[in-house]
């Protein structure tokens, strides 16, 4: 059963409003694939009511530890930010499909935006363990230097690393897409993998489509059940209708998503 109790072993505020939680959860640590998420219940009351989905940042089967990155955006994540070591969470997971690893030996580019770095750290970690390691170039963008959360963990797992900030406080100035387009031209990779805000993913998908590079995105959406029943996390599909982020994703071939119909977020 994709369900377990996780004990909070360590909570670290990596930068203001961003918490790296280390959970003791052997079941999930053993089963988790990069790109999958856990659906975590906060307390046993009715406010906050719904579970919160978090991408897995790292899972270590040997130690039974699972790490997630929490950004405080509202009531639920605000409560998590106050939790002390020893707190037990009821969680569903690992859920979702995760990224399919490339065959090996390829040239790949990972594109992260803000907290979207979390599943890409796990993915990059897995690529390094492959027999025929792909050559991994990564681009990490955020509003400013501080928001390049966990960048050292990301950079350490990649062969090339470029930071981009909107205010120029670290790395290049601009958006990840300003770096991605010339990067694809300079040396065309076999695959691009991206996670970040919808606007960024839409732009990355367009650039990859124009460059003829397959692109796989991990999406985020408000969720109800997390198991594919409520259809609350649906996003528009290019084939018409909607696909469920929780059960059909969160990872999609970027061509499966109708970016024109993706509204706002």
């Amino acid at each position: 059963m994709p369900r377990a109790t996780a004990i909070l072993r360590h909570r670290e505020e990596v930068v203001s409003g961003h918490y790296l939680l280390t959970l003791d959860c052997p079941e999930v640590a053993k089963a988790a694939q990069p790109g999958q998420f856990v659906h975590l219940r906060i307390g046993d009351g009715t406010d906050p009511l719904l579970r919160r989905p978090f991408s897995i940042l790292l899972a270590q089967p040997e130690t039974g530890e699972v790490q997630i990155l929490v950004r405080t955006v509202g009531r639920g994540t605000g409560i998590i930010a106050t939790h002390d070591e020893g707190v037990a969470y009821d969680l569903l997971g690992p859920l979702g499909n995760g990224w399919e690893a490339p065959a090996g030996g390829e040239d790949v580019v990972l594109v992260a935006g803000g907290i979207g770095v979390a599943p890409l750290i796990f993915f990059a970690d897995g690529l390094r363990l492959m027999e025929r390691q792909p050559y991994v170039r990564s681009i990490f963008g955020a509003a400013n230097q501080e928001a390049l959360v966990c960048w050292t963990e990301f950079a350490a797992r990649c062969d090339e690393f470029t930071a981009v900030t909107e205010d120029g406080s670290a790395g290049e100035t601009g958006l990840v897409t300003d770096v991605l387009a010339p990067e694809l031209e300079r040396d065309r990779p076999q695959h691009v993998y991206a996670c970040g805000p919808d606007g960024m993913l839409a732009a990355v998908a367009r650039i990859c489509r124009d460059a003829g590079v397959p692109c796989y995105v991990s999406m985020e959406q408000w969720m109800g059940c997390g198991v594919g029943a409520c259809l609350g996390c649906a996003v528009p599909a290019s084939a018409g209708g909607y696909v469920r982020v929780c059960a059909d994703g969160p990872v999609f071939d970027a061509t499966e998503i109708d970016w024109e119909r993706m509204k706002r977020r």
């Binding site: 906050p48 009511l49 719904l50 639920g76 959406q221 408000w222 969720m223 109800g224 409520c230 259809l231 609350g232 996390c233 649906a234 996003v235 528009p236 018409g240 209708g241 909607y242 119909r261 993706m262 509204k263 706002r264 977020r265």
Partner: peptide, 12 residues
């Protein structure tokens, strides 16, 4: 068949 409504579809 029904496509359903545009996202976001749920809010706590």
């Amino acid at each position: 068949p029904r496509e359903g409504n545009p996202q976001p579809r749920v809010r706590e």
